[in-house]
């Protein structure tokens, strides 16, 4: 079976849409049934948190996108700065976030203009 060329990206996108949609539909179907099972519900919650944290920290440490062009030390320094400020400022998400972005942007600018190798 061959598709007309113009439809290939659309059909591939369709597969990506279905691959994501099935999880949400399964979640919609199961949500009410699981809510009454305390331990199971707590477990699903911790799995969600651990999965999200694992994926996001993986992306920071081992990015597959354009961030990978920045040196590992820059990404880690910004991450450490964000966590440190977040912790010192009473878990302030906005201040931690601003610190991380500022450190990453400064390091990127320093490299761009030749202040750092």
């Amino acid at each position: 079976m061959t598709l007309p060329d113009a439809l290939v990206p659309w059909s591939m996108m369709g597969l990506a849409v279905i691959a994501t949609f099935v999880w949400r539909m399964l979640g919609l179907a199961l949500a009410d049934r699981l809510a009454s099972h305390k331990l199971l519900f707590d477990w699903v919650n911790t799995v969600a948190y651990a999965m999200v944290a694992g994926l996001m920290v993986r992306i920071i440490f081992f990015p597959t996108n354009v961030t990978a062009e920045a040196p590992m030390i820059d990404r880690l320094a910004a991450f450490a700065a964000a966590l440190l400020v977040w912790w010192l400022r009473g878990r302030s998400q906005i201040q931690g976030f601003a610190a991380g972005v500022a450190v990453f942007a400064l390091l990127s600018a320093a490299r761009l203009y030749g202040f750092l190798p």
């Binding site: 999880w23 399964l26 979640g27 919609l28 699903v44 919650n45 969600a48 994926l55």
Partner: peptide, 12 residues
Amino acid sequence: NMRMLPMTVSGL
């Protein structure tokens, strides 16, 4: 995108 399952189960 598998995290959508635990996220919808806990969020909805």
